[in-house]
Structure formats: C-alpha cells, structure tokens
Amino acid sequence: MNNNIVKNSIRFLGLVLIQVLILSNINFLGYINPYLYILFILLYPFNSNRSLFLILSFLLGFSIDLFEDSGGAHAAACLVLAFVRPNLLRFSFGISYDHQNLRLSTTPFGARVSYIFISILIHHFILFFLEMFSLSHIIIVLKKTLFAGLFSVILIMLSLAVFSKKYR
C-alpha cells in the first residue's frame, strides 16, 4: 500500500516535469505534441478509491495547465477521462476487469491498444476543443486530435514496453 503511494507520487511528478519541460516543446510539424502524462491516469491502480482518483486526475491536469497557460483545458480532459475509465476498462478487457485481477502488462495486446487508443482520443478531443473553444474550428480540433493522438499512442506504448516488468 505504502509502496503504491510512493510509486504513484513519483510517477505524478515525473510525468508532469517530462511533459512541460520536454514533450510540450517538440512541436512536430509546427503543432503536434504528444501528451504522455495521461499515463498516470491509465496506470492508476484499478481497484482504488474512486473519489481520490478523480481529485488526483484533476490536479494532474491542473498542474499541466499552470505551466502551459491553458486555463482548465487539461484539467477538464483528465477529469473526464478518469470518470469514464471504468467503462473503458470494461469495454476493452471485459470479464477480467470485473474480477478486479487485471494487470495491464498481462492483458492481450489488442485489448491494451484499444484501451489506450480510446482513452487518448477522448482526452485529446476534449483538450483541443476547450483550447480552441469554438465550434467553427471543429475541423482543426479533429485534425489535431488525430495526429497528436497517434503520436501519443506510439509514445505511451513505447514507454509501457520499456518500463514494464515483464521484459526484465
């Protein structure tokens, strides 16, 4: 339990710093940045206290907002993602999630990709929509969601592969 708290705190701080100091300055093709920090939400223990999880996700997005001057766009996107996560888990992993014995590194590859991909699409869409804040730019929002989303999926899959215990 204690170990879990330490691990998640380090992950929280580490991901925020990596995001704002490195990843947000990539600007691939002018505007595409990966958002790795939602890895925190994706990996947060599945059977933990729901209220605490919502508050932590909000704080995660809010700290990114502080650095990037984006108001509350990241906070809202993270919050919604955290809120719908149980549904996504049930959708992607089915029965094993309901039995609460799920570990992300042991799930089938296809299910894991679908979980990560859908989460990222939801998060990025809300994020870019709130950043633009107008319906007339919806095409740009969708374009950014798709491109940045692919970039994020690749980066998240890679970091999962590098840091997962299965391969050690």
């Binding site: 508050i55 990037e68 809202a76 919050l79 709130l130 804040f133």
Partner: peptide, 28 residues
C-alpha cells in the same frame, strides 16, 4: 457530484482564459 463540481471548475477556468479582460488567477 465531485465529478460535476470539478468539471464546472475547470470549464470556468477555461472560459476565464478565453475572455481577455478578466484577470485569471492561474498563469505561468
């Protein structure tokens, strides 16, 4: 309820940054 409250808060922050003359409390 917690979700709705936090969502309202973040949307409020977002709207504030989009209105030019209001001073937002959160900035870099």
């Amino acid at each position: 309820i917690l979700f709705l409250f936090l969502l309202a808060l973040s949307v409020f922050f977002t709207i504030q940054t989009h209105s030019f003359h209001k001073s937002s409390f959160i900035s870099s």
